[in-house]
Amino acid sequence: MGSLLMAVKSKMYIFTHRRARGMLDGEYASVFRGRSLDFDDLRNYVPGDEVRDIDWKATARTGTPLIKRYVATRRQQLLIVADTGRNLAATARGGELKKDIAVMAVGVLGSLTIRHGDSVALVHGAGESTVALPAKGTETHLESILRCLDAASLASGPSRLIDRLEYVAAHYRQRMLLVVIADELVADEPLAKVMRRLSAQHEILWVQIADAILAGPEAVAGNGLDVAGLEPLLLLLDSETELARGYAEAEADRARGVENLLKNCGIATTSIGATGEVMTQIFALLERHRRAH
């Protein structure tokens, strides 16, 4: 059995060599607003640095803009929250399985976490069963996390992300960075309640794995099942124009509801439909979070 983490790291290597060195790491390092830092030294200002980090006295003395550089005095924790129910075995927008995209996204973020000396944990499960893996800062542990995501199948229990989120709200009090790996879901009151509670206590990034398009020229051929209930899909969407239009409008309303809920909670989000989009979307997600805070 090949290493899932090695496959992720090989794709990261290609991406990072197409961009300025350190940009992705820099975006990760900027996520923690509450990071405990000690002053280290000064370096020359480069475009993109935070103006608030300029040492104005040193700049006046030298005539050259200088940035204060800090080092972390304590480790941070990244907590991945994912529902590994049967929805993760469904087909995503780009035609791949959703779990493959989840493995890539978590692998990228987990690799950045470990590279910065931080630790990563996982809360996952299906149906009413929630499993928590403790925070560790090793690649062996990250590989175990990726294996948990990759194990999702149509034989898994039903997906209930709300149960995973409520578990985190009840059991994790220390401030940390939460990355939620989400299927497309409805912004109902239970979700709004738990997200308001979590966003008041933690930094949160929301990674949505986009559903396959079921009708129209961009429709993706899937496994023929609605994995939520293991029932045949509504194949009439391809032949009934009005039905397809109503379905599209309902999906757009649902998506807007989730988007507005997360925006009101101050949570940066991204939607990913293929593994080839992961690196670009994760980079953009970290950048949006930094600019928002």
Rank of each mutant, 00 (worst) to 15 (best):
T91E: 05
Q208C: 11
R288F: 07
R86P: 08
D83A: 14
R86N: 10
L24V: 12
R61N: 12
Q76S: 15
N44V: 13
S239R: 14
M1T: 14
L88A: 10
P232T: 09
I282T: 01
L214R: 04
E139V: 04
G26N: 15
G266D: 05
L230V: 13
F15G: 07
G26Y: 03
D83F: 09
N223K: 11
D211G: 03
E251A: 10
V278D: 08
D163H: 14
R86I: 08
R43P: 11
G127I: 08
G48I: 12
N87L: 15
E143F: 07
G34C: 00
L79Q: 05
S3A: 02
A192H: 06
R256L: 12
L66Y: 03
K193D: 08
L198V: 08
W56P: 03
E203W: 00
K68L: 08
T138V: 05
A132T: 08
L161C: 10
V31K: 01
L262M: 08
K57L: 11
A182R: 03
G222P: 06
L146K: 00
N87P: 01
A151N: 06
M176A: 13
D238K: 12
T138A: 04
E96K: 04
F39I: 06
G224C: 07
A155K: 14
L233R: 13
E242C: 00
E203Q: 09
E139M: 05
N260D: 09
M279A: 14
A244G: 10
A105E: 00
V186D: 11
T269K: 00
V106D: 02
L236Y: 00
A152C: 07
G127V: 07
L66I: 10
T62N: 07
V180G: 04
K68E: 12
R69G: 02
S199Y: 00
D183I: 06
G110C: 09
A255D: 13
G22E: 09
I14L: 14
D118Y: 03
E27V: 06
Q174G: 06
R19K: 14
A187Q: 01
L198E: 03
G266V: 08
L237H: 02
L109F: 01
H293Y: 03
